[in-house]
């Protein structure tokens, strides 16, 4: 078990160090996502009923668009520096590379959300310190990262990759967005865990299944 985890942790550590030094992912992502929800908040201002209904949709629009920019970055930096060749020639096998990349993607996106949720709470006057809301957000982000890591690695070798990633990725991530938005809206409007358990189940099954598929298919998208 330890020998399986070691390369994963090494990849995670490498990505974290690179990010701390280059600041290429988290900072621009937070900026972009905050600007997106600011614009929507501005457009919906003055209609508090409306904004309560659409608040979580706007939050997830911010996450999704910001997240896509992050996904493009995750593997394009590897491509630029020929990092994939390095990773493949290291002792890590493809599953370990997948899990390492998945965890770092998940971590980066979660940090972005950690910063965005308070901004969101202030702008839309919403109580964000609800455990369920954070749980949904984390489960949604995990599903997002599970598919995103595969597609990010795949589009790295395509022509016009920046356009192809959203085209391939968005239709697949729709169930996650629907589940996250519907359940967050329930929670924001005072719903309880029992009302959203079906969404949570859907998210958990989705995450588990796509992590498995991602781990299995990753070798096919990375081998030359």
């Amino acid at each position: 078990m330890k020998s399986f985890l070691q390369p994963i942790m090494a990849i995670l550590w490498k990505d974290l160090l690179t990010e701390i030094r280059s600041k290429e992912i988290i900072t621009p992502l937070v900026g972009f996502s905050v600007v997106t929800i600011l614009i929507f908040s501005m457009l919906f201002s003055g209609s508090s009923q409306l904004s309560n209904k659409f608040a979580s949709s706007i939050l997830w629009i911010g996450f999704t668009f910001g997240g896509i920019l992050g996904l493009i970055k995750i593997f394009s930096s590897e491509k630029e520096n020929n990092g994939m060749a390095g990773l493949s020639s290291s002792s890590a096998n493809t599953e370990q590379i997948y899990f390492g990349k998945l965890i770092s993607t998940f971590l980066f996106l979660s940090i972005v959300e950690l910063i965005m949720l308070p901004v969101f709470g202030i702008l839309f006057n919403i109580q964000i310190f609800i455990l369920e809301l954070w749980l949904i957000t984390l489960l949604g982000t995990l599903g997002f990262s599970a598919i995103g890591t595969t597609f990010s690695a795949m589009t790295m070798n395509l022509r016009s990759k920046d356009i192809m990633l959203p085209i391939l990725f968005l239709p697949i991530v729709i169930p996650v967005i629907i589940a996250a938005v519907s359940s967050s809206t329930e929670i924001i409007n005072g719903g309880s865990l029992s009302e959203i358990h079906i969404w949570l189940e859907l998210l958990v099954v989705f995450d588990a299944l796509f992590i498995l598929i991602g781990a299995w298919t990753f070798r096919f998208v990375t081998e030359e």
Partner: peptide, 20 residues
Amino acid sequence: KYAAVLGIIGSVNSIFVYLA
């Protein structure tokens, strides 16, 4: 290979889209 991976993910995903 890319297309096959997308085909697998897309097919499994259609079940979730319908459920959602």
